[in-house]
Amino acid sequence: MSRRAYVVAAAALAASAVAVALRTREARSQHPPLGRLMEVDGVRLHYLEAGSGEPIVLLHGNGSLIQDFAASDLVRLLAQTHRVIVFDRPGYGYSDRPRGRSWSPAAQAELLAKAAARLGAERVHLLGHSWGTLVALEWALRRGDGVRSLTLASGYYFPTPRLDVVLASGPAVPLLGDLMRFTLTPLLARLAWPGLLRKLFGPAPTPKQFREVPRALVLAPLALRASAEESAAMIPAASALTERYRDLDGPVLIVTGDGDRIVDHRRQSRRLHDLLPQSRLLVLEGSGHMVHHLEPRRIAEAVLAQTRPASA
């Protein structure tokens, strides 16, 4: 490559970096924190609260944030009878993700359980979506007495070959990944956004309310690193959990869409249901991965049924 080509490439990367920085700053200006900020173990966490009563904690998936749940109507429905707490998991939205620490599902579960306890929610009903199910499972397994019921939606529970995981892990690579996520990766991700939504929501169309989810915050450099790290950790995390599922105690609700294009519901949700005799399985016909957007009322009703005493 000639010297001029190097100069042109460097200039293009610099221009991309400026564009990404401006877009991220604009997104933060247009979409300030929905809730409050707290610090736990040196990590700033953003959380949203609604309603009153027994607490239900919602944990979003990979590449997501609080607005994903807030826009879906699930928060409003649950908050009619319960106190709902939604966290931006570390690295997403307005929550930090310091380097040099483990951000495994277990580490996140410990941190978020401490945060919930700080808010006076020591015993909770727990709902995790997608990658958030791994955190929810670790929370329930490590702090079983503190989890009244567990809802797992669109989860990945058993290790399987996943080419998409390898491709999505690029921004986690030191140096080169850092360079890309501050320059080209957010721009390329914007171009791929429509196709990603079709995969996430298909076979159903993307609902209008998903427009409330700020794309620029989802594609911010820190969020891209968090997403890539979690993509790389997904298969090992599921593998580490596989032999521990039988240790789960208490009610478990497993929710899946039969049209999920991200995870195979038969090899994941149905298999987990077969493994857990105390579990209930809710299969939503015609729904894809984003079940909380596509069937929020049915999910809310199923979650609330979990919260009632067995004799009720």
Rank of each mutant, 00 (worst) to 15 (best):
A12E: 12
G202A: 04
F210L: 14
E54V: 06
V147L: 05
G259M: 10
G177M: 02
P105S: 11
R190M: 12
G288W: 02
R44A: 10
S29E: 15
P171W: 07
L179F: 11
G51R: 02
R280S: 02
A192L: 15
G93W: 07
A189C: 06
D249M: 09
L167G: 10
L58C: 02
V218S: 07
T242H: 13
Q108W: 07
A172L: 12
L197W: 14
P296N: 07
H125Q: 09
P207K: 13
A10E: 11
T160N: 10
Q209K: 15
A237P: 02
L112Y: 02
R76Y: 14
L34C: 09
L284V: 06
F182Q: 15
D41R: 09
P105M: 04
L22W: 14
V124R: 08
G128T: 04
A71I: 03
T81Y: 02
A228S: 11
R198K: 13
H292C: 00
L187N: 09
R225A: 05
Y94D: 01
L78K: 09
L74T: 08
Q108L: 07
W131S: 15
A50N: 13
V18D: 03
D260W: 02
E54L: 09
F69M: 10
L200Q: 14
S130E: 05
E285T: 06
L176W: 13
A312R: 06
R280L: 00
I254R: 04
T133K: 03
L141W: 03
D145W: 09
T256I: 06
Q278C: 08
V84G: 01
V303N: 00
V252I: 02
S72G: 08
M290E: 14
P296W: 05
T256Q: 15
W139P: 05
Y47D: 03
P277M: 03
V84M: 15
R76K: 15
